[in-house]
Amino acid sequence: MTTNAQTAEQPIAIRVSGLLKSFGSHEVLKGVSLCAREGDVVAIIGGSGSGKSTMLRCVNFLETPSGGDIEIGGEKVEMHADGSPSNRRQIERLRQSLGMVFQNFNLWTHKTVLENLIEVPVHVLKCPKDEAIDRARKLLKRVGLAEKEGAYPAFMSGGQQQRAAIARALCMNPKAMLFDEPTSALDPELVGEVLQVIKGLADEGRTMILVTHEMKFAREVASHVIYLHNGVIEEEGPPEALFGAPKSERLKQFLKTVG
């Protein structure tokens, strides 16, 4: 698998090989692979139902794979023969190194923004509370929400909630970030503020896997793009190649329909 030149010697952050996933008899992923080295931004694009979310969610085992291998930070995830993870403690530990951002933000509604941010650092990572609060405040400032630390999520705009959710993921100091269509649930005028935050993360060299429908954005930030169709990787490569000179008919068609 190809990665861009600057990061070719970097250690591998996430490697997925031959991933299979079925829901009942419905085969959703038919052997997909992906490799993200540290600093890579891998974008996954594709039509609705092509398996993008499923692939991303298998990386941190929110979905249980039906087969294949997954390696996080050089550590192979222990699986049974059927692909299900065999060591829950390992899964929990590995998840702590992956910051996931969801389409619907999923902030905890009974906690203020600050409480959302320090929840996992304090209760899972056992970080001292004042240290966690310091860190959370810095991150909130960074995503432009310094004034909102005492607010409850229900009283914030979608864009603010998503920026808070990104800060919450960053608060764990993750080795990589996973984004599942982070702007799809947002009103158009709020998309920009969230993309700007994600762009900032890409620029500082964060490893990310990003499922997105924002083609312009994928082209701008990604170091590697994967086009998924019906559970197979139809085409992949650097963004200039994929968007500039698509080879497969399907991808050409797809790019035409999404504009």
Partner: peptide, 18 residues
């Protein structure tokens, strides 16, 4: 309980009890 909020906690490595 909205399943997304439980999923967010699982995704961050919380144990079942916590």
């Amino acid at each position: 309980v909205p399943s997304g909020q439980i999923e967010a906690a699982r995704a961050m490595g919380m144990s079942r009890g916590l």
